[in-house]
Simulated scan of single mutants.
Amino acid sequence: MEDKEEDVRLGANKFPERQAIGTAAQSQPEAKDYREPPPAPLFEPGELTSWSFYRAGIAEFVATFLFLYITILTVMGVNRSPSKCATVGIQGIAWAFGGMIFALVYCTAGISGGHINPAVTFGLFLARKLSLTRALFYMIMQCLGAICGAGVVKGFEGSGRFELLGGGANAVQPGYSKGDGLGAEILGTFVLVYTVFSATDAKRSARDSHVPILAPLPIGFAVFLVHLATIPITGTGINPARSLGAAIIFNRHHTWDEHWIFWVGPFIGAALAALYHVVVIRAIPFKSRS
């Protein structure tokens, strides 16, 4: 009996280091550990058989559809008024674009990441945040959603009035050159994609738990500010799907003549933002060497 009591007494102190670790864990708050997430594979065949993959694509389609529906209707309302001050004006257009991005990113971030923009998808792909398979699928669904959204607006407005009001299509405005338009699209998209990287940075999320919750706010606000700056220059594209959807439904020669600007500019801006974030801000290539 005494031997058993001795064993119990010794057993309680057999692993004192474990008891110390347990005590420390209880007395100190749990530290947030951060590990650099591995790069996404270039091609992931397993995605093609996963329902979550297609669900994410559908979410991108619906979000881009709603985005074009609300924003192009807002543009139509401003252009319809003889005096733009009688409606929401340019500030209202900017708020419509920024506000919809804020709402839609909030709604879809947990499903697809809330890209709603091929330029954002392209930038995240270059940073190896998603596979080429998913990136191409997202871009296709975004473009289809944009076409449908602009088409519904044309159905509401009627063909004649829709075309008279410009269809919400992007074009370089009088007084500006194509080079000016390209530069505005590059810089505007850089601001947007740079904000996306900063607002969704996994390292910041590990340090500040509130960052993922607030991510849609700075992204939407960046869209708002870019529109304020560049609506007078190009009507503000910074989203190839938005420009494509409006151009296809409007379908006028001068729109197609300058349409390349609204693909080349955003993709260059997104690539520069991805390079800046990965190399300068996060210094990931230098970390991998050490």
Rank of each mutant, 00 (worst) to 15 (best):
A215V: 12
V105P: 06
A150F: 08
N170G: 08
D208R: 11
V75G: 05
H210R: 14
R207T: 10
L42I: 15
H227G: 00
F262G: 02
R242A: 09
Q19E: 11
T23Q: 12
V196P: 05
T108A: 14
A25T: 14
Y34P: 07
K203W: 05
V78I: 14
I111V: 12
A241P: 08
A119V: 06
G179L: 08
Q28D: 12
A127S: 12
Y276W: 09
A222N: 01
M76N: 06
A146F: 02
T71Q: 05
I248S: 09
V152A: 12
A25S: 07
Q19L: 09
L48A: 09
T49S: 15
E163F: 04
G98D: 07
A12W: 08
W95F: 14
Y138Q: 06
W260D: 00
E30A: 12
I147P: 06
S50A: 14
A184S: 09
K84C: 00
S83G: 10
T230M: 00
N13H: 11
W51D: 00
L10C: 05
A20T: 09
Q91T: 13
I72R: 00
P174D: 14
H254W: 01
G166I: 15
S81I: 10
S159R: 11
L144A: 15
S288A: 15
F43T: 10
H277Y: 13
G220K: 00
V120G: 01
K287A: 10
H254T: 09
Y106T: 00
L42Y: 13
K84A: 02
H254D: 11
V196N: 04
F137S: 10
R134K: 15
W95R: 04
K154A: 15
L244W: 10
F267G: 04
A59G: 03
E157S: 10
W51E: 01
G183K: 01
